[in-house]
Design a protein around this nucleic acid. Sequence first.
DNA 1: CAAACATTTAAACATGTGTTTATATGTTTT
DNA 2: AAAACATATAAACACATGTTTAAATGTTTG
Lengths: 110, 110
Amino acid sequence: MPSNTAGPYDSEDTVVHVADLFRLLGDPTRLRIVLRCLSKPICVGDIAEQLGLSPPLVSHHLRLLKGARILRGQRDGKKIYYSALDDHIRCVIDDMVAHVGEPLDCEELG
Amino acid sequence: MPSNTAGPYDSEDTVVHVADLFRLLGDPTRLRIVLRCLSKPICVGDIAEQLGLSPPLVSHHLRLLKGARILRGQRDGKKIYYSALDDHIRCVIDDMVAHVGEPLDCEELG
DNA sequence: CAAACATTTAAACATGTGTTTATATGTTTT
DNA sequence: AAAACATATAAACACATGTTTAAATGTTTG
């Protein structure tokens, strides 16, 4: 337990860790990549093609997202399929979208 | 109207907007400031003192957070008390902390 | 084994942004 | 109205980071 008068989240390690996850979701390109991985596993080439990005750029972002335990990748042949590590990321994004309050038909994201 | 075959969150405006909110929570100092405002309204000077930051720096971050409608400020005398704009931010942060709090047993990463 | 495909790595480049410092605005009290 | 306090603004600086380009690694197929 922290010894200061801080709230529940103020452990220095936790704050830095949580901020790091938010920061990773805070880049539009990277967020788009994450969104593509939420509904179903998808390989690097398909992400690149669908988003109009170069494979190296997508791979670079995927590496960061995998390192932060936001996404996971499993190889199938020569392709590597990326998907959400767990459901928390989905909840976080859903809550944030709710905060934004912009019209969305979230049908595929259950 | 999006003209591509994108998923539910891929409206360009929404993605950029959501990413912007995540980016703001992605700085440790700024996240600490937000956390101080979640439990109860708190004024700039108190935040600065409790976190060991300069008032101008705190004010600068608060301005960004207020502009993004993450926090709101209401004046009482010469002090301005900042608090969360709504509960979505609380949910987002709670979910992310839950994500961090995972024991991380599942090391089966590609 | 070699060729073709999918992904990764590394370095260079450009840009964005958090922090500091100094100054200004606004509010209350005397 | 002036002084003291609380917060906000602006510019300069230092650092972090997203993107591009080129080369390398790993996997399957002929």
